[in-house]
Nucleic acid binder design. Sequence first.
DNA 1: GTTTAAAATGAAATCGATTACATTTTCATA
DNA 2: TATGAAAATGTAATCGATTTCATTTTAAAC
Lengths: 329, 329
Amino acid sequence: MANIQQVAKQAGVSVATVSRVLNGQNKVASKTKQKVEEAIKELNYEPSMLGRNLRNSESRIMLILIPTISNPFYFEIIKGIENMALSQNYSILLCETDSKPEKEDIYFDLVRKKMADGIISMDPAVNVETLKELAEKYAIIQCSEYGGGIDIPYVTIDSEEASYRAVKHLIQIGHRKVALINTDEKFSYARERRAGYQRALAEYGIPVIDDYILYTQQLGFEHGQQAMKKVLALPDRPTAVFAVSDLLAIGALKEINAAGLDVPEDMAVVGFDKIDFSNMTNPTLTTIAQPMYKMGTIAARMLIDLLKGEQVDSVILEHELIIRESTSG
Amino acid sequence: MANIQQVAKQAGVSVATVSRVLNGQNKVASKTKQKVEEAIKELNYEPSMLGRNLRNSESRIMLILIPTISNPFYFEIIKGIENMALSQNYSILLCETDSKPEKEDIYFDLVRKKMADGIISMDPAVNVETLKELAEKYAIIQCSEYGGGIDIPYVTIDSEEASYRAVKHLIQIGHRKVALINTDEKFSYARERRAGYQRALAEYGIPVIDDYILYTQQLGFEHGQQAMKKVLALPDRPTAVFAVSDLLAIGALKEINAAGLDVPEDMAVVGFDKIDFSNMTNPTLTTIAQPMYKMGTIAARMLIDLLKGEQVDSVILEHELIIRESTSG
DNA sequence: GTTTAAAATGAAATCGATTACATTTTCATA
DNA sequence: TATGAAAATGTAATCGATTTCATTTTAAAC
């Protein structure tokens, strides 16, 4: 575990010269450079990030805030973030909040303590006040989710429009009784997706029936099952259902199967996110694809720019309706 | 962004005293302590991990090496690791290798550069030579996977026994033609699972048919589909299949459905891992449950102990056969 | 009021790098 | 050969904490 002093001694130069060789920018005579490189090799020297980071007042770590790692929705985004980060010599600290403020706080502290340089938040449940406050002093990007009305740069898709298209698709293939399985409207995307749902209905002159709109606490499989149970129990049963996440939709799928009904014959289903598993179910799931990998790379790029002190603007990416078996018998 | 000097000045004490208050162990007069705490509050001071880490020659970060984040198998393990790590003031750096040595190397470098204190490797494809070399200087734990014959502590289950039980279950419910969808036997667990498969067959006097053993490159859904295609095309078609991962099994399930066959009537299926999705398929999947959360906490505990310089022994955990619809009509 | 041991506190070194500034070397030119 | 600018290198401060060792303060015992 040699340090820069020892390398300098071994090469017969000063630490400044070794540092210059290490960082490459400054001009060092090629003969000197060679001596230093030999010394580095001989001593098996690896520069310590601890020293470098302290001196540079940075950690080269970005913190990724997600509610839970169990939702595959985040996979591709994380991959995108990771690859961009890696290419810029950043590492990522993956942090599950479980949507709990206490855990959130632990992670925010990491930034305050300079363990991480900035945050990419994908947690819709994040404490908006704290985030806002934090954003005044630290670099923060919101990814896929964003708290409305805060001045923190974000990258996301147009949820309202995506939802509108999903529901329009259902109407166009003949459905007029469309249920919506939504989550808590404290989340902006939930409000937007309901708005899109209503816009599609309105466009075709279909009245909104309150009983057709279900709310779940979370986006998981079981919540989809429970919501679907209620849908199936409705007196005037819908013929189609749009769930705001694939996991919800897959839960609904399972429940419909369990009730002995056929998808899409008796009940068409549309999900949201295009997670890997949406293609593994039987039938495969019609869903809205978000450009997740790209979203990840952009979020990471934005954070890095922010850290460099550059001006960063929010980005809205394209989405796509993927029609599969659950809406096309 | 106050530092310890400013706090000391504000409180009218030396930095040593502030440090002592911060770390709590040394005795500081309660009056002094109060002064310091007030100064900390007034200046909104947060100790910098950069300074602390340099001084302590540690990063308080552990590196988690996984082949890909796309396999839900790792979820619970990661959660286990994270919670244990958090409780001991460690953070985790999640690193996807994509089973590529180049990416692996980038992450190994993080340890060499003291960006991370140690490694929990869950990557069976990891370069064993490099790992062995690294283990001489750094703290490393193998989790769920382990390269045979290396002197690196691991936590895992008894794969041979688990596989034996899975196949025995199939035999006991009446199957004598059991296919095995395995992965590359360069992985120790693949060798062990084949051994367990053979032991079960042998115990019931069933000859091993080479054609019934399939090998896939990876553990993913598509690989399960492809392997199942081959199984279904066999002249003397098996009546049951044991896949060494749930994703493979789910791929197989899909393929069997696509062929118009019924599970478990025409083909019983057993998976391995008990990922969340194994309960969302139709039919639900019989599988081997590994105590993943526990495995994660133990791995983290072991790494922390290793970092403290303590002696650490390998651990083998219990597994459990979960019988569900795919083997019980 | 001394004496003395224990408790509290402080001064300064240290961890391992980077970098501003000072100094030395090189080398083209007069 | 002397000159001076440019290039190369070195010295030492710095980042922000912890900790050893020395010093001062406290308080108990006589």
